[in-house]
């Protein structure tokens, strides 16, 4: 059973986060190992395994990037272990500019307004990429979807870089 089947959801990129969480909680209760405390050793072991699979499935589907990677994996495209590089000059130039902007944030890490505005801009660009990704996945344009996923990975990295600046300001 794949992660989507586990939650009884179609293998689509668009997902209702609140609905997913509800389904997760319901299944979590059904599968909780404590419920099998008086069962056989085999039942207990299965409950632990199911519970672990459920957690893994939820973590994967919850995050748009991991969800997209998973959908493409189901379609036979492994993006998690690839070591390919990308050369899109415009995209990479924009990444360089982002990195410079984050360097500047580091110089004035107490500038919360600047950090906030960086988050907002990154969020907007990330959303745009996710919309693009959604269209490609829905249209079965796997190669174009893979390119969008690769770009999304850079956006994730930028987000964690901004988070690091924010943490150092506390």
């Amino acid at each position: 059973m794949n992660h989507f089947e586990l939650f009884d959801l179609p293998a689509a990129f668009e997902i209702d986060a609140a609905d997913l969480q509800q389904r997760y909680r319901k299944l979590q209760q059904q599968l909780h190992p404590d419920r099998f405390a008086r069962g056989s050793e085999r039942d207990k072991l299965l409950a632990v395994q199911h519970s672990a699979q459920l957690n893994d499935a939820y973590q994967t589907l919850k995050t748009p990037l991991y969800r997209a990677e998973y959908i493409l994996q189901l379609r036979g495209i492994d993006l998690q272990h690839e070591q390919q590089t990308i050369r899109d000059p415009d995209f990479l130039m924009a990444q360089m500019e982002w990195r410079e902007r984050i360097e500047e944030l580091k110089q004035a890490a107490d500038n919360f307004a600047a950090i906030d505005s960086a988050y907002r801009d990154l969020e907007a660009q990330t959303r745009e990429l996710q919309h693009e990704l959604e269209r490609h996945i829905a249209a079965d344009e796997n190669e174009a979807a893979a390119i969008a996923v690769r770009k999304l990975k850079f956006m994730h990295k930028l987000r964690s870089e901004i988070e690091r600046v924010e943490d150092s300001a506390d």
């Binding site: 993006l79 070591q83 050369r87 990479l92 990444q95 690769r150 990975k153 850079f154 994730h156 930028l158």
Partner: peptide, 13 residues
């Protein structure tokens, strides 16, 4: 030459 590695988000010029 500009390249990027999606695996780690590194960019190199």
């Amino acid at each position: 030459g500009m390249v990027g590695a999606p695996a780690c988000g590194d960019v190199m010029k």
